[in-house]
Amino acid sequence: MQAGSGAALALENITVTFSARGAGTQTYTAVSDTTLTIAAGEFVSVVGPTGCGKSTLLNIAAGLLEPSAGNVRVLGESLSTINRHAGYMFQADALLPWLSAQDNVELGLKYRGVAPEVRRLRAEEWLARVGLAGHGHRYPHQLSGGMKKRVALAQMLILDPKILLMDEPFSALDIQTRQLMENELLDLWSADRKSVVFITHDLEEAIALSDRVVVLSAGPATRPLGEFAIDLPRPRDVNEIRLTPRFVELHRQIWHAMKDEVLKGYARSQRV
């Protein structure tokens, strides 16, 4: 709410060190001295090679994980528990399998003590908005991969979070469904511009969706290598935007930087 600060989410000098599995004093530094600021209404993608600690960074932002060092600020305030202003969309299936789609979407409202009639109506509304009107009675196992993601999206958005944290949400989908979901996400996002941190290993997806792309180095001790502003016009269609010269130019530019630095980081990690 502090308009003055401007940043919806700020990760300040975050370091995450895990003690290694098994006995001993060995430690593993997943993320090292990372600073990342997301402005209100900004769509930021974080790309990096698989296993580089992207999810760790997101869990820090969500308050699910406490950093070993550094500070997280949410809307100007220091984060000490679960991030109440954030919605989290997981890579794996996170719907409660014993609840129908309708009940899954209602869940967050139920936790907040919203009256049953009210939450039923709002859940129906959200199911309709993600194109699942009339599918509310189905259980997650009766839904396709894309439908499950839509339910997860509705489950998150019904609480109207200021910040969306998305951890490779569409990586398990086939390419057509994925592009449909990406467009749908952009539509929903453009309605009321929330701040988004979108984690992906797919550079094309990152460019097509974002205002800014942050490239992370390979783990261990991941840190940001560079930032690229994406000046493609909105509204975008993820299928069409991929064919524009500016997109290709940006892709070449980021990929070049990413490849060089990632290879450098890889070589360094091999030497140690």
Partner: peptide, 12 residues
């Protein structure tokens, strides 16, 4: 599932 658990936590 830890994912389901975290999801419920994030939903409040």
């Amino acid at each position: 599932s830890p994912v389901v658990l975290n999801n419920a936590r994030m939903l409040g």
